[in-house]
């Protein structure tokens, strides 16, 4: 089922608690009382239709639902994606690191096994950060620039040159290896580390990894299914008068 503006905000969270960080990023904190989604959004000055598209795309991963986001401005979508980046960097990654460190402190793992996991996660983190800064420094500004030119109805020659040399499609490949590393790390914990006396701490790390994975896949879906096709269309439209 899809969320609507008349539903209570609290019910959205009862539907799927993983929405919690998503609504925080959109500028809404807990303490909902029994207010509707619309009422809270109005109070906080959040565009309710944008809010609903983002939440529904998270809940229902079908292409059509995610596609709804396309009715909103590229700038707003990019602003939301930037907030998901800072959520990864400031919150979830440090938390996973803390939990991995606990595995050694409570001697669930010997030093070698611990270092294997820790270094693997470090490597993942480095790649994630490189990817994030590429997006923030180059991809997102480019997207916003294209959208602005598109709405103005023309692009200057510098932008035309950019479209020709680095179209949005040339950035697409980037996500795959980062997703694969996260996938591997889960299997290392689930399958290949020696059996612990008590799995509790490993479970916690895994729970965080699954949460991160779902959040990142939502993030990537918005980029690949909404922004990239939208920007590609705009690029083509901007190139046309040149021919």
């Amino acid at each position: 089922m899809i969320l609507t503006k008349d539903m209570k905000m609290a019910d959205a969270i009862h539907r799927n608690y993983l929405l919690l960080p998503v609504i925080n990023r959109l500028g809404i904190q807990l303490g909902f009382q029994d207010k509707s989604i619309e009422k809270i959004c109005t109070e906080k000055g959040v565009d309710v239709s944008f809010f609903l598209s983002i939440l529904n795309a998270f809940l229902d991963t079908k292409k059509t639902t995610t596609g709804q986001i396309q009715t909103h401005s590229v700038k707003n979508v990019v602003a939301y994606l930037l907030k998901t980046h800072s959520y990864y960097i400031e919150r979830i990654i440090p938390e996973i690191e803390n939990r991995i460190n606990l595995l050694l402190q409570h001697s669930q793992l010997n030093k070698t096994e611990f270092l294997l996991v820790k270094n693997f996660f470090e490597e993942y983190k480095r790649e994630l950060y490189v990817h994030i800064s590429l997006e923030e420094d180059r991809v997102y500004p480019y997207m916003v620039e294209i959208a602005e030119a598109y709405h103005l109805g023309h692009a200057n020659s510098t932008l035309i040159a950019k479209i020709k040399s680095y179209p949005i499609a040339s950035y697409e490949e980037e996500h795959s290896d980062i997703e694969a590393k996260l996938f591997d790390l889960k299997n290392i914990l689930i399958k290949y580390l020696p059996e612990p006396k008590d799995s509790y701490l490993q479970n916690q790390v895994l729970t965080m990894l699954f949460t991160l994975e779902q959040d990142i896949s939502d993030h990537a879906r918005i980029e690949n299914k909404v922004l990239v096709p939208q920007i590609t269309q705009m690029e083509n439209a901007l190139l046309k008068p040149q021919n």
């Binding site: 070698t112 096994e113 294997l116 996991v117 693997f120 490597e123 290896d177 694969a180 590393k181 996938f183 591997d184 790390l185 299997n187 290392i188 399958k191 290949y192 580390l193 020696p194």
Partner: peptide, 21 residues
């Protein structure tokens, strides 16, 4: 194995003592 990356395979090989540190 359910392991896709080279560094994942390295960890697997070390944990299973196929190679040494």
């Amino acid at each position: 194995l359910g392991i896709k990356t080279v560094s994942g395979l390295t960890v697997y090989a070390l944990l299973n003592k196929l190679i040494k540190m």
